[in-house]
Write a protein that binds this DNA or RNA. Structure first.
Lengths: 104, 104
DNA sequence: ATAATAGGCAACCAAATGGTTGCATGTCAA
DNA sequence: TTGACATGCAACCATTTGGTTGCCTATTAT
């Protein structure tokens, strides 16, 4: 889980996921296209995404195809975000109450 | 948005949010309790959470009370996670198809 | 008044991070 | 078969990060 959070913490990596979300199965060079980074930098980012299981790759001859794996993202939503949904309204109203109490 | 992702990338900070989720409005020293870090390290983490608007603080005399703000977490869910929900099944089945095609 | 308590500030440090360059390897096409 | 193309590997670099220590300030309780 920590690896996923860390992987998602970088804007370049989120951009790569966005690209794969727009069109899945792109090669390394396709993913590099238009980005202000060297190919090697992109390789590293993709490696981190792959290590976090956010991307799965498939060799096809000399090309490496990258496929997004939506499962870890979904898990972040289920296991983490949702926990804070419950009690969200309670937290906000309590905060509001405390903020108002300040002026007593 | 980037600040929120970065703030959530650290396990210590997520643990602090968990603590506030369990009991809101804790002081700095309460939050330090039991953690294997100096108070100053915790202060820094809380500063990052506050900068990302994940935590709001309120001075009460010499104490500083920390309240969780669930809104940015919710926004990550809405603006980011949900985007990948749509097409999740499509991505998975395509990945499965490609993986099977490998053995042709 | 004064001691204890709660927190703030700043300098410093090691390790991790995001990036680069240079070169090597494997695969495809002419 | 040889050149072009797609990717891999490794060393190196600057900056950021997560943490420390030492000291200072503000508030509360005795």
């Amino acid at each position: 889980m920590d690896e996923v959070f860390k992987a998602l913490a970088d804007a370049s990596r989120r951009a790569l996921l966005d690209r794969l979300h727009a069109r899945n199965g792109q090669t390394l060079n396709e993913l590099c296209d238009g980005l202000d980074m060297t190919r090697q930098a992109v390789t590293k980012h993709l490696g981190i995404l792959e290590a976090a299981n956010l991307v799965t790759t498939l060799r096809h001859g000399r090309e490496k195809l990258h496929y997004i794996n939506p499962v870890p993202i979904h898990q972040i939503g289920e296991r983490w975000i949702k926990k804070f949904e419950r009690g969200k309204l309670a937290a906000l109203s309590e905060l509001k109450r405390q903020l108002e109490k300040r002026d007593e």
